[in-house]
């Protein structure tokens, strides 16, 4: 019996170690920059309440620009070689269209359709946690041609540039554009990856950087300036939430960038990569305890959690 207990404990500890090995992996996708799309005419314009908005048209760009497709393909291949496969933009766009068609067509036996709110439709976009924005320009100087190439790694939630590589290649008389582009990718990808690795190192050392917002439904009977007696102190609800964030971040690292009765925005929030049971942590798992706290006395509030990818979370007070 004692031996059995020891064996069971060993198995449990081994499985615990195995479970703690992996943090949530960010998704990365290469997209042409807005600058490139606009300069090359791949845009679509729509009227948003009287204001004309111009957006990049990735699908049109990929269908027409072989050089762009080749460059994205080359970057994807090199990243896959490094053991970090990327989300392919073209496939993501195609999958999104297919998914939309399937959702529209799918019905249950009783004739019911798939439930989808407007926000579900809005969120159904080709997205990734880290966007690699690609820009290139062919420079002509007399008969010589060169390429200016830029890669920017942007965190989709903190809007920070976390990696980058740029430069202009050597001028050449006879080299074709695809060759210049391939050479540019080969010249810059390793420097880019080196910076990306530095970002990952920082993430493992100081926690994942996310953004968090606390908002209030307009139907809610309380706002964030409502005072509560909590743990022997009279504090505003917003201050209590701020204290919770401070206690649940790595070394208490976060910034409160906005604080009103209706919204508090926390930026540069460093959440741990693993919870106390060594399970991989994400924003939803991280904020669940705050929801539980606000659901109990003295607050007794219903709270909705709304996630925006791996790195941004909203907590909306008042109802689900």
């Amino acid at each position: 019996m004692r031996k059995l207990k020891i064996v069971l404990m060993m198995m449990l500890s081994i499985s615990g170690l195995w479970a703690s090995g992996q943090a949530k992996k960010p998704t990365i996708m290469v997209v042409p920059s807005d600058n490139w799309c606009i300069k090359n005419g791949y845009t679509s314009t729509y009227d948003e309440m009287g204001t004309l908005k111009t957006l990049p048209d990735y699908k049109m760009a990929l269908q027409n620009e072989t050089d762009l497709l080749m460059t994205i393909g080359k970057i994807n291949t090199l990243m896959a070689d490094r053991g970090f496969p990327l989300v392919n933009l073209e496939s993501a766009l195609r999958n999104m269209e297919q998914e939309s068609a399937e959702i529209a067509m799918l019905t249950s036996r009783s004739g019911g359709g798939i439930a989808e709110s407007p926000i579900d439709v809005l969120q159904r976009t080709a997205n990734a946690d880290i966007i690699i924005q690609l820009t290139y320009v062919i420079n002509n100087l007399g008969p010589q041609r060169s390429i200016t190439f830029m890669l920017q790694g942007l965190d989709a939630y903190t809007n920070k540039q976390i990696a980058g590589a740029q430069g202009t290649g050597s001028p050449s008389f006879a080299t074709e554009t695809p060759v210049l582009l391939e050479e540019a990718v080969l010249s810059h990808i390793d420097d880019f990856n080196s910076r990306l690795q530095s970002h990952f190192d920082d993430l493992f050392a100081n926690g994942r950087e996310v953004a968090c917002q606390v908002r209030v439904w307009d139907t809610s009977i309380i706002d964030l300036e409502e005072e509560f007696n909590f743990n022997g102190e009279n504090l505003e609800l917003g201050e209590i939430i701020e204290d919770w964030v401070s206690e649940n971040t790595v070394n208490g690292r976060f910034s409160t960038t906005n604080y009103t009765e209706n919204v508090i925005r926390f930026d540069q929030v460093r959440i741990p990569l693993y919870d106390e049971r060594q399970r991989a942590m994400d924003t939803r798992r991280w904020i669940r305890d705050l929801r539980s706290m606000l659901g109990g006395a003295p607050f007794n509030q219903e709270v909705k959690i709304y996630t925006r990818g791996l790195g941004e979370i909203w907590l909306i007070l008042g109802e689900k």
């Binding site: 090995g21 992996q22 943090a23 949530k24 992996k25 960010p26 990243m79 070689d81 490094r82 053991g83 970090f84 390793d190 990856n193 990306l196 690795q197 990952f200 190192d201 493992f204």
Partner: peptide, 22 residues
């Protein structure tokens, strides 16, 4: 051959693999 060199150093544990730990 810096790509091969990087793989050698990764294998030797001198530098981490890209995204190691995810």
């Amino acid at each position: 051959m810096h790509a091969q060199l990087r793989r050698e150093l990764e294998a030797a544990g001198i530098i981490p693999k890209l995204g190691q730990g995810f």
